[in-house]
């Protein structure tokens, strides 16, 4: 299946802003993190199609994953 991965803030350093990834069926967010060499504890906000999820969340074809380190403001 294909998913879109969007990275933000320091996660972009040495990686990318947005890329499509091919994953095997039943992949979890955790698999994406491993692929990108990001530790789960580095992730503050993980959105799949705008919804907050945990790293065990199982992905579906066409999902958009957005990953943020701890950031905020206002």
């Amino acid at each position: 299946m294909r998913v879109t991965v969007k990275l933000f803030a320091t996660f972009r350093d040495g990686r990318f802003k947005v890329e499509e990834k091919n994953l095997s069926e039943d992949s979890q967010v955790l698999d994406v993190l491993q692929l990108l060499n990001i530790l789960p504890e580095e992730v503050a906000i993980c959105l799949v199609n705008g919804r907050d999820v945990k790293e065990q969340h199982v992905l579906n074809d066409g999902d958009t994953i957005a990953l943020f380190p701890p950031v905020g403001g206002g």
Partner: peptide
């Protein structure tokens, strides 16, 4: 030691929220 006050805000300023709030829809 806080990620937001120790890293996020100092590095990017408060506009770092643009992508977070947008991606949340």
């Amino acid at each position: 030691e806080n990620g937001v006050t120790g890293q996020g805000l100092p590095t990017y300023g408060s506009a770092v929220l643009v992508n977070i709030i947008n991606e949340t829809g």
